[in-house]
Each structure stands twice: as structure tokens, then as C-alpha cells.
């Protein structure tokens, strides 16, 4: 029984992290129609940002907030150089461009910072709380809390604010949105920066438990894609739900089937969802646009 609860707790804790990264990905997809394969690399940037700020004896929470800004700034530059010129071209080209960006960022950071993992330690990182034989490290609790807050904030932003209305309009139909005076290009810019900056925070949050190194983002990108597809692309509550579902599938398949086949099982689940309900678990059915 303890094991069962521990598995659920593990899955939920990881799921919160996946949800946070997927949130940025799904926002960007919704507005720009871009499958951003460089998403995980912004987590890496955020993590490196946190590491270097903490080397300068900055408070951990402050460092995380600044890593949000760092990731956003780098996202701004990348968007201008690699994505903005392609806004009118095929989505496939944008995707390829993001692959190029990913190769570039990983290898540049390896060149600049060496491939050695770097350790970020804060007051939470070593401790864990315990209840009835179930353990959860304090850092993971922090991740869950921050992730839920950010998900909630993003949801509020999209549903209630003026910016959110523009984003939703731009993602539903960019042409009509432009006709109504919504600056879709600027919205795309802001969404991209906000999306990657969220992922930057995720990177800063994971730094104490996963260490910081150049290739840390790649597996996160893949997981985030699974989450986004499960939840429905461009769908915020879907991404949050999807995050927890993927986390749970992962921990249950590892716990009760096989740790070696963990990834195979996660992707098979994705496959099944795509076949049965391609628009995602939470989406309402939409017909094809002619």
C-alpha cells in the first residue's frame, strides 16, 4: 500500500513539472502553429541562469524569477532570428528551424560551460518530508506548488485579461483577428517569450534535483510533446491534465510493468490516444476546416 501511494506521489510530482513545460509548448503551438523542439533547451537556459546567479550568492527564489527573465530575453532574440522570418512559411519549416536552434543552444552551452554537471543546492534540496512511509523531497513540493500557481496564473491570463483574449483570438483564426485590429505578430512574439520563459522557470526549479548540464533539456522536450498531444494541442487545461496523466502512466508502468520499457509504454499510450481521440483527451470534437 505504501508503495502504491508512493508511486502516485512520484507520478504527480513529475507530472506537475511536465505540465509546466508543456504549458509553454502548448501556448506557442496554439498561437504560432509551431512544434517547438527547442522548448527543453530553454529549461536548460533557465537552469544555467539559476546556477550562475546562485554562484553570485543570490537568493534561490530571486534567481528563479531572474531566470524567467533570462529565458525570456534569449527567447526574444531567437524568435527574431529563427522564427519571425518564417511566420508565413510552412509549419514544417518552423519545426526544422526549432531543431536547428536546439542543436545550436545545446552545443553552445557545452562549449561555453563544459559538459560537466553543475550542482545547485538550496535549503530545500537535501530534505524530504515523510508521512506514513511515503517520502517526498521538499524541492519537489516546491515544484508542484510553483507549477500549480503558474498554471493557474496562465489560465487566468488567457481567460480573463485583454492579452489573453487577443492570444485566443490569434490562435483561433489569425486572419480574422488581424481584421479586428489585433496585432497578431506582436501577440506571437509575446506568446513565444512568455512560453519559453515559463519553461525557464521549470529549468530553475529542477536544477537542485536534476543538476545542470547542456543536454538536460532534450528528454524534457519529448515528454512535453507527449503531454501536449495527450491534452490536446493548444489547450491549457489539457496540458495541465496531460502532465499529471503522463507522470502517472510513467510511474505506474515503471512500478508494475518494467523500468526498461517505461518510455515504450508512455509512447504507446500516446499512440493509442492519437488513434482513438486525435484531438486530445480534453478537447471538444472539432471538424476539419475546409
Amino acid at each position: 500500500m505504501t508503495e502504491f501511494i508512493q508511486i502516485i506521489v512520484n507520478g504527480m510530482a513529475n507530472g506537475a513539472l511536465y505540465a509546466l513545460i508543456a504549458l509553454g509548448l502548448t501556448l506557442i503551438y496554439g498561437v504560432m502553429n509551431l512544434s517547438n523542439f527547442a522548448q527543453g533547451e530553454f529549461a536548460m537556459i533557465g537552469a544555467f541562469g539559476t546556477y550562475f546567479l546562485m554562484q553570485m550568492h543570490m537568493n534561490y527564489m530571486l534567481a528563479i524569477i531572474l531566470s524567467f527573465i533570462i529565458a525570456g530575453l534569449i527567447g526574444f532574440v531567437i524568435h527574431i532570428l529563427a522564427f519571425h522570418p518564417l511566420r508565413k512559411s510552412e509549419p514544417l519549416n518552423m519545426m526544422l528551424s526549432s531543431l536547428g536552434v536546439s542543436v545550436f543552444l545545446v552545443n553552445l552551452s557545452q562549449y561555453l560551460f563544459s559538459p560537466n554537471p553543475k550542482v545547485v543546492s538550496n535549503s530545500f534540496s537535501e530534505k524530504s518530508i515523510q508521512a506514513f512511509g511515503v517520502f517526498l523531497s521538499e524541492q519537489r513540493i516546491l515544484i508542484v506548488i510553483v507549477s500549480l500557481i503558474l498554471c493557474g496564473f496562465t489560465y487566468w491570463l488567457l481567460e480573463r485579461s485583454k492579452f489573453g483574449r487577443s492570444v485566443r483570438a490569434a490562435s483561433l483564426d489569425p486572419d480574422t483577428a488581424t481584421l479586428y485590429g489585433i496585432p497578431t505578430n506582436r501577440i506571437a512574439f509575446l506568446t513565444f517569450i512568455f512560453g519559453v520563459a515559463l519553461t525557464g522557470i521549470a529549468g530553475g526549479l529542477t536544477a537542485p534535483i536534476y543538476n545542470v548540464y547542456p543536454t538536460m533539456g532534450i528528454s524534457l522536450t519529448l515528454k512535453a510533446f507527449v503531454v501536449v498531444v495527450l491534452g490536446g494541442m493548444g489547450n491549457i487545461p489539457g496540458a495541465i491534465m496531460g502532465g499529471f496523466i503522463v507522470g502517472l502512466i510513467e510511474s505506474f508502468s515503471a512500478g508494475y510493468i518494467s523500468t526498461a520499457f517505461q518510455d515504450v509504454i508512455v509512447f504507446s499510450a500516446l499512440f493509442l490516444v492519437l488513434i482513438i481521440k486525435p484531438e486530445g483527451i480534453l478537447s471538444k470534437v472539432q471538424g476539419e476546416k475546409v
Binding site: 508503495e3 508512493q6 508511486i7 512520484n10 510530482a13 513529475n14 529542477t206 534535483i209 536534476y210 543538476n211 538536460m216 528528454s219 510513467e250 510511474s251 515503471a254 512500478g255 523500468t259 517505461q262
Partner: peptide
């Protein structure tokens, strides 16, 4: 891989 909680729980 970065997260080993699943393996370790088992």
C-alpha cells in the same frame, strides 16, 4: 535520465 524515483520506489 534524471528522475529515478520510479526505480527507487520499486
Amino acid at each position: 535520465q534524471k528522475d529515478f524515483n520510479n526505480q527507487l520506489t520499486k
